[in-house]
Every structure is written in C-alpha cells, then in structure tokens.
C-alpha cells in the first residue's frame, strides 16, 4: 500500500484534477453533440507546435507553447463560427474535417524534418505516470481559473449548450459566448493532452458525462454523478496499473470503459 501511494500519488492527483474540469466540460460537449471536438483541437495544437518547429523553435520551448495555443484559438474561432442557428451541415462533420486536415498538414510539414512522425506522436501521447508535481500545480491553477469563469457565467454557458434556441430568443450574443466556450475549452484540452495524451483526455471528457446521462437529465446532477464516475475510474485504473504493472494511461481508459458498462447494466436493472 505504501509503495502504491509513494509511486502513484502524482498520477492519481493529476487524474483528480483532470476529472474536475473534464467532468464539467464533458457535460457541455455531450449536450452540444460535438463528441470529437477535443481530438480536433488537440490535433490543431499539435499542428501549431509543428509550425513552431518548422520556424526553428525547440519542441518543448515556451515559444512552441504559444504557437500551439494560437493554433488552438484559431480552431476555437472556426468551431464557434460554424455553429449556426439553422444547421445545414452537421458540426460533427466540420470537426472531423478539421481533425483530418490538420493531422495531414502536420505530416506534410514534418515530412522534411528528421524523426518527423515522432514529433507528432510525442505531442499527442502524454505519459500520466511520469507527471511532475509542478505540472500538476500549473494545471490545477489554470483549470481553477477556467472553472471560476464558467461558474461566474454558468447561466449563459449552460443555456447556450443545452437550449441554444432559447438563448437566441433571449437575444444573447450566442456566437460570442460560443467563442468564449471554445477558447477556454481549447486552453484546457491543450494542457491536458500534453500531460495525459489524447486517449485519456477523451475518456475523462466523454465517459463521465455519458454515464451520468443514464441516471439524470439535470445538468447539476449529471455533473456530480460524472465526477463520481471519474474518481472511481481513476482509482480503479491507477490501481490496476500498479497491481499488474500495466501502462497507466491505457489502464485508466479501460477502467472507464468497464465502469460505463457496469453503470449501464445497473441503470437497466433499475428501470
């Protein structure tokens, strides 16, 4: 037990921080039916970093971070601009296109540099086992600020996600709020992916929200159920990774899958 805590407290703490913010943002994302938006934004961030490398910056330097953040904000702009009141083209299609094109662009840019593939892989595959304490603190402070902003304007944020038609009727500047949502979302996803990798971030975002949908229709209830599921999956995944010496990120994702399956069976019997 003591070895477990000594070794795994940092990944576990990082998981709890990730659960906090992604459990919340996930409810929005599922409501908006833009399930793969985080993958697209992570890929755009990787493209930004790739462009920085092309200009001779160090892959892990601060200037590269600003490049990828800039690219993410551009992506946020695209997603808020393409969400229209009367949707002709499904937004999920646009998200998919942005994902594919930015991934292809990154490959094209890096095809002329050595170890090209690995640059992209490194940006998208974090290793949560090796997360450092300063990284966790930085992440926690950033996410707390984003969380505070969302809490302050929760009425508008929740309204544009759950009932956009009502928001238009109330004459809210929906596009501006959308942009703010995607800006903050992009900021969070870029940082998370760097630490935990795309697979894990996707699971933290989507699985708790989907699991919570099985039990409740109310936003606040879904949020708390989601957090509960997130904590359970983190504990189970990190525990399994330690017990059987498995890759930590993949263990947590699998635990998420298992817990969602268990939750569905439970909710089916409850009815």
């Amino acid at each position: 037990m003591s070895n477990f805590l000594i070794l795994m407290w940092k990944p576990l703490l990082a998981c709890l921080v990730l659960t906090g913010i992604h459990g919340y943002l996930g409810v929005h994302v599922v409501e908006r039916k833009v399930i793969f938006v985080d993958l697209a934004l992570a890929q755009i961030a990787a493209l930004g970093a790739t462009i920085a490398v092309l200009f001779g910056h160090n892959l892990h330097g601060p200037s590269t971070y600003w490049f990828s953040l800039g690219a993410t904000f551009l992506g946020a702009g695209i997603f808020s601009f393409t969400r229209t009141r009367r949707e002709k083209i499904p937004q999920e299609a646009i998200i998919g296109i942005v994902y594919a094109v930015s991934a292809a662009l990154a490959i094209l840019i890096l095809s002329h540099s050595a170890e090209g593939d690995e640059h992209i892989r490194y940006m998208l595959v974090g290793n949560i086992l090796l997360v450092s304490f300063p990284e966790i603190i930085k992440m926690a402070v950033l996410y707390a600020l984003v969380g505070l902003l969302h809490f302050r304007f929760r009425k508008n944020f929740i309204l544009i996600s759950t009932e956009p038609e009502e928001a238009y009727r109330q004459r809210l500047p929906v596009k501006a709020w959308d942009l703010l949502f995607y800006l903050t979302f992009g900021l969070v996803v870029t940082s998370s992916v760097h630490i935990a990798g795309v697979l894990l971030v996707f699971s933290f975002l989507i699985v708790p929200a989907v699991g919570a949908m099985l039990f409740s229709n109310r936003f606040s209830q879904r949020l708390f159920i989601g957090w509960g599921l997130g904590v359970a999956a983190s504990l189970a995944g990190v525990g399994a990774s330690y017990a059987w010496d498995l890759p930590t990120g993949a263990s947590i994702v699998t635990a998420f899958g298992g817990i969602l399956a268990a939750a569905s069976i439970f909710s089916a019997f409850r009815r």
Binding site: N3, L7, M8, E118, R121, V125, N127, L129, L130, S241, Y242, D245, L246, P247, T248
Partner: peptide
C-alpha cells in the same frame, strides 16, 4: 528511443 515506462520501472 520511445519506450513508455511502467509503475514497476519507477519503483
């Protein structure tokens, strides 16, 4: 170049 360490490695 690109091995991913496991909990046992850290220990």
């Amino acid at each position: 170049h690109f091995y991913a360490p496991t909990p046992k490695d850290v220990l």
